[in-house]
Simulated assay, not measured.
Amino acid sequence: MPTKKTKKSLSIVKIGGNVIENTAELNRFLTLFSALEGPKILVHGGGKLATTLASKLGIASKLVHGRRITDADSIDVITMVYGGLANKTIVAKLQANTCNAIGLSGADANSIQAHKRPVKDIDYGFVGDIDRVNTNFIDTLLKAKLSPVFCALSHDGKGQILNTNADTIASEIAIGLSKIYKTTLYYCFEKKGVLLDIKDENSVIKHINTEQYQDLLTQKIIVAGMLPKLENCFHALRHNVDKVCLGDLEMMKTDATLFTTITL
């Protein structure tokens, strides 16, 4: 096993549905992603595309507190969109940018195995909580100079595809590969970073550690949808991921300065 000093750097980048939905933004992001030096992995969702296709097929999308209920009809649509349309569109565009990518779901080579989320207050349907990541297989791809592109699908090892949160997939892949690489996890979304003032797009908090995070929670600066994202960040850091960054597409540039870096 390499020592920390000799570990190669690995970038794991998760992009949100707002980027995938916008062709110009997606093209710009994939150009920047392709330019990243060293081994890299891309993780994506595609919830908005899935909702649009489901509507065209006459399938109503059900959301509770912003989380999708994945029933039998929905998992079929999600598999088509995430594993097919979104994933293969991204892979083809990366090839056009001379980034040799390979598209994957968690079922491929048993990459990401999960279990169906137990029913408590809400039955989320075919939603998966991750049990294990096949780091040896992913490392084999990276050593072959391929860039894995994971969609937000896992499997249960019994033949069932499961809809799985893309932020969590990115986090668990980063954690798994931190044994081999010095991993940096990037969450790329529509904001420039974590904002001090939600009304001021440029009020980016450039660095947050554990103590500062608690202060921001106390002041109620971090609320709503940013809470689970930040919890994911600190979960990754507590499990040996080197650092986590949040920001918009500009974060991918080598000279970028306006984004948020999370450390312990």
Rank of each mutant, 00 (worst) to 15 (best):
M1R: 13
P2Q: 14
T3D: 12
S9R: 15
S11K: 12
K14L: 03
V19S: 03
T23E: 15
T23K: 15
T31R: 10
L36R: 10
G38K: 09
P39D: 07
K40E: 09
K40L: 12
K40W: 08
V43I: 14
G45S: 05
G45C: 10
G47D: 06
T52R: 14
K56S: 15
S61W: 09
R68A: 05
D73P: 04
I75C: 08
D76G: 09
V77Y: 07
L85V: 14
L85A: 11
K88Q: 13
K88Y: 14
V91F: 06
A92E: 15
L94P: 01
A96G: 10
A96P: 03
A96F: 12
T98D: 13
T98V: 11
C99H: 00
L104P: 03
L104Y: 04
A107D: 04
A107T: 06
A109I: 08
S111V: 02
P118W: 02
V119A: 05
Y124C: 01
G125I: 09
G125R: 06
G125M: 12
F126S: 10
V127E: 02
D129G: 06
D129A: 13
I130R: 02
D131Y: 06
T135V: 15
N136R: 15
I138M: 14
I138G: 03
D139A: 13
T140A: 14
L141D: 01
A144I: 04
K145R: 08
P148S: 06
V149G: 00
V149Q: 02
S154H: 02
H155N: 13
G159M: 13
N163K: 01
N165A: 06
A170F: 01
S171V: 11
I173T: 02
G176H: 01
I180L: 13
Y181K: 04
T183V: 15
K192A: 08
G193V: 07
V194T: 06
L196E: 03
K199Q: 07
K199G: 00
K199V: 00
D200T: 00
N202M: 06
V204A: 02
K206W: 03
I208E: 02
T210I: 10
D215G: 03
I221K: 08
V223L: 11
E231K: 11
E231G: 07
E231I: 09
L246Q: 03
G247V: 07
D248A: 14
M251C: 09
M252S: 07
D255W: 04
D255C: 07
A256C: 08
I262Y: 00
T263Q: 12
